[in-house]
Write a protein that binds this DNA or RNA. Structure first.
Lengths: 341, 341
DNA sequence: CTGAAAGCGCTAACAA
DNA sequence: TTGTTAGCGCTTTCAG
């Protein structure tokens, strides 16, 4: 029984001994960073294989200063405790980042709470911070440590950090509003989430500007991403009750959009004839809703792909880009906003 | 500008110097593993904060032998290169494992190719191997290194490894077959995937036994998970053409189930009246199909939760369990197998 | 082409 | 309560 089978890790020293060479020769055999005679290399490889040698990654990165690992921090606090909408969003982003990292042969670490001292910090060469808040503290912390950071969506208070993949909301949100307007909507209510991130802020800004241009009264409200369905229903009811109810609602999350559709149906309001409905993120709720709900897909896969590329470029010493990469969300018009005319 | 802002990591030594104490005092201030006077502790904390000190995780784990990180390897090779069905499956499992790890404050590493020497190995205390193959080489490699491993589904050739979360297929597959039989199916075709894992093997075994018991002729075929839709369509066509076409098909993946529904529709075959259809994994394809397709949900979230629990228990020194944990897949009967009678 | 040895930053045993 | 120091396993300079 060799050392590995016994549970004790095999070190470079044992391999060297077995092969009858020095530890530096073993090291160089694997790194290839200096010429080793074929005979020696064969002996070392054989010894390593027999012993089940696997270089200790901590020792290596202590020495080299690099781990070959990229971190991922998903900021939205409701990402983890999830309604299906949030779960789908979270899963798509995490899955896509993981896929992309693996495709490049890079290990990916999901970083646990940065601020919890009970939690060991992780050896990462750089970190992807997804959907940061305005003035994001975790982002600031990492930047303060001098760690290379790439963000998925910008910290809305620091929109110009160049190492970022951003979503270009204005044209898409305008297209959505124009579409609603073209279908006859004149009283459009925007229900944002309460998370202070780009996804909530940018569309709100675009909406305000659009209303001003059109000379329409802006109508906005908040619906926290953390609400339970019953609590959200409670808040939605009165919005549909009064005589001044909106003729279209744009709501941040798609499961609340589906909820609004239900509440509307219960009140006898027909969609899209009496009320149009759209969501600012897409999910199965929207696609399979009754009727299917118009939604903006945030192209998580593309965000992930570009973010990983950006990070790897950065770690290989690429120049700082002139500005963020911009991607365009994908507007998916569905029956909830399509009036037969 | 301090060292961190300058890009150079701050070490314990600098903190000690600044606080006017020894490095072991700094170490113990953070680890809390020996009493430190309040005054000293305050000075150290202040110095650390001012310098932006963050303990080097590689140094720590080199010394302690533990990293606090759990690895995750997803074995199915089609998990990454994905059709939507595989992407949903992969995303759900990865997302759920990540969520569960974070909930416990544990870092999670997606392990890149174990056998690629160009890829740095990762510092993990244990590893979750999901959906291993029969005689899985990666699993064997990790076990050979003496690393604590927990599997999600068993290596079908090593069904008794106790550190595993398994799916209890037989009763659910039987229930599905009984259901089809009760609806009148007598010529049931099972189209397995070609990945040699539990998900393909166990239902096949159950099917064979069920046919034997019922005195029915087993009809089986293969449809590789890696096929493109057109290629899969090519293979499916003849199955529906002959006079001895099956009256029910159980197919492994749900997107091929949806494909079969399309092909059947194109041939004028009505579902479920002339052909019943079921999938051995659920996805939006099945839920949103026309008609919606009966499917077995593999409860990825529950698998992930139990696997992470098992891993953390194992790492805290829990006793080896008597056997694997068994979970029951969730059979979701839908219109594709529901004949009006 | 190969070996000896320093040292990465930290923890923990031992000393005081 | 605090300080001194060995050494975790590796990479890399410097010698040969």
């Amino acid at each position: 029984m060799n050392a590995a089978a016994a549970g004790r890790p095999v070190t470079i020293r044992e391999v060297a001994e077995r092969a009858g060479v020095s530890i530096s020769t073993v090291s160089h055999t694997f790194s290839g960073r200096r010429p080793i005679s074929a005979a020696t290399r064969a002996r070392v490889r054989e010894a390593a294989a027999e012993l089940g040698y696997d270089p200790n990654p901590s020792a290596r990165s202590l020495r080299t200063g690099r781990s070959g690992l990229v971190g991922l921090i998903l900021r939205p606090r409701y990402a983890v405790s999830g309604t299906p909408d949030r779960a789908e969003t979270f899963n798509r982003l995490v899955g896509a980042v993981a896929t992309e990292a693996l495709r490049h042969g890079t290990g990916l670490i999901h970083v646990p709470d940065l601020h919890d001292p009970a939690v060991a910090s992780v050896p990462m060469d750089g970190c992807i911070v997804a959907h940061p808040y305005g003035g994001d503290t975790a982002l600031a912390e990492l930047l303060g440590r001098g760690l290379p950071v790439v963000t998925v969506e910008e910290d809305p208070d620091r929109p110009d950090l160049p190492w970022a993949v951003r979503l270009d909301y204005p044209p898409v949100v305008e297209a959505l509003l124009d579409h609603l307007h073209a279908q006859g909507a004149r009283e459009i209510l925007l229900l944002s989430g309460t998370e202070d991130n780009a996804w909530n802020r940018r569309p709100r800004e675009t909406y305000a500007a659009w209303c001003a241009r059109r000379g329409l009264r802006p109508r906005t409200g908040l619906l926290s991403e953390g609400l339970s369905m019953p609590d959200a229903a409670e808040l939605v009811q009165p919005l549909l009750a009064g005589p001044d109810r909106p003729d279209a609602i744009v709501v941040a999350t798609s499961d609340f959009a589906a909820l609004i559709a239900e509440v509307a149906a219960a009140r006898g309001l027909r969609i899209p004839e009496e009320l149009m409905l759209a969501a600012l993120t897409d999910s199965e709720h929207a696609r399979a809703g009754h009727p299917p709900i118009t939604a903006m897909d945030l192209t998580h896969e593309a965000l992930a792909e570009r973010a990983v590329e950006l990070m790897l470029a950065r770690l290989s010493g690429a120049e700082t880009p002139d500005g963020p990469v911009f991607l365009t969300p994908d507007l998916r018009l569905r029956a909830s906003t399509r009036r037969k005319s």
